[in-house]
Amino acid sequence: MKYLLLLLLCCGPVTAQSEPKAASIIKKVDENMSSDSRVTESQMIIHGRRKSRTVSSKGYSEGYEKSFTEYLAPAREKGTKMLKLDDRLWIYSPATDRVIQLSGHMLRQSVMGSDLSYEDMMENRKLTEMYHVKIAGEETINGRLTWILELDAKVADVPYVKRKMWIDQKRFVPLKEDLFAKSGQLLKRVTMEDIAQIGGRWYPRKMNYKDMLKDGKGTDFIVSKIEFNAPISEHLFSKAVLKK
């Protein structure tokens, strides 16, 4: 009992101070993780019930609204292009030479059978814009000391109203993230590995997304090449680019 009191006393000032500190942590995380624009080459490894498969793609994005993805492999997917502007989505398939427009609800469907929705993939807003943050403790993950941050949404249009992030105290990169429903139910877990320095920032090259309500191994997302704040031609964010 005595110890508990002592602990509470110690913690008191920590939480009081943590708001500004938490804000600065999350700002540094944003600096690592978020960018005005980016060009990414990545592989997605989808662990199916039967077999796993890898889909490679190259993606260009600017802000939250604009993104363009071109699939590179496997052969079946090669040449498929996807353009998202606001909540509109167009998909071009070379086999049919057609541009198909999908309405907003399709953004919530899973991408290529993975545990990620289009929405999850396009998420690029700064955490500081979306969430209030506080520090909830510390923990060591894979030998690295982390802060546990609790994020509460301050805007309405976020898919996850609550998040919990484990932030590497030295590199300001999340190593693990839990996504919660409004009710507090854990929905998804993202684990980051293979943290590397890319263009002056720390960035996880491998992430695993797992839907916690379903059985399965989740989906791995591996970044083989990423370029931050590179100039992207506006042309890439127009429908003309699809049919080419």
């Binding site: 919530r108 009710s183 929905l187």
Partner: peptide, 14 residues
């Protein structure tokens, strides 16, 4: 367990 989204698309589950 049931999972749904509110009018803003935010997940909820209970």
């Amino acid at each position: 367990l049931i999972r749904w989204r509110d009018k803003n698309g935010t997940f909820d589950a209970t």
